[in-house]
Design a protein around this nucleic acid. Structure first.
Lengths: 125, 125
DNA sequence: CAGAATCCACGGCGATACTG
DNA sequence: CAGTATCGCCGTGGATTCTG
């Protein structure tokens, strides 16, 4: 029914959408936060501490970005000292799988690096 | 034979290596260059023109980084006006597949965005 | 406790001019 | 042609201070 078949996206599209994902994930701390939340729901202060070096400002901003893109879910409890919990959304979990792919590919990067260090073994029969 | 079994890499390792890949690819122009070279070998000036907005300085730097990591191969021909060609290495081609994975995942991101725009249809039976 | 607001340092990238 | 060198802008992120 539709006109143009979805086959073969233009390179421009691929570049743009690839960038969209990378920008989402390339923030210095996005990956750390997602991996941490993959271990379960955390409070703001817990993330702040467990991630390590991150500043409050950047953590807040990172969380807001991830939330805006539907990666994490924010839940605020109106208690006396406020409590805010963050957890991965379904989309966040699917992102987790992508991160695994990226992690797995890193081994190819390492292999290549190792190969580069001893040129003699490159084509060993 | 080896001592520690490779199972279950530490989260720290995963974060570090994931970052290593992302830093490689997160440069504003890395993806564009790799996608372009996936279309075949190009000369420096061709890349400069075809990629679009990039400056010479940044292009050179991007190419050097990719070359240093074994993603692209540089070949200089000592002719009168110098000619330098860049192409994807085997590792570069394997990176291409990873970029495809990322691109494909972007559709999930879009679906989620669409879902977010009309909350009513979320759980439609 | 969970931010928001402000100030500042740093690095990435573009623009331009110059060179082998 | 394929860079290098220099300058300057701008965005990202840290440190600190303040608040509901």
């Amino acid at each position: 029914m539709a006109s143009t078949p979805p086959a073969a996206p233009s390179e421009l599209q691929m570049i743009q959408r690839t960038h969209a994902v990378l920008e989402l994930v390339a923030g210095r701390w996005s990956v750390d936060v997602v991996y941490l939340l993959a271990g379960g729901t955390r409070r703001y202060s817990e993330i702040l501490y467990e991630v390590g070096e991150i500043s409050k400002k950047t953590l807040t901003q990172t969380l807001r970005t991830l939330e805006a893109h539907g990666i994490v879910t924010r839940h605020a409890y109106p208690e006396v000292p406020v409590r805010v919990e963050y957890s991965l959304s379904p989309l966040g979990w699917s992102l987790t799988r992508l991160l695994m792919d990226i992690f797995e590919w890193s081994s190819e990067l390492d292999q290549d690096r190792a190969r580069a260090r001893r040129p003699g073994l490159a084509l060993a029969a």
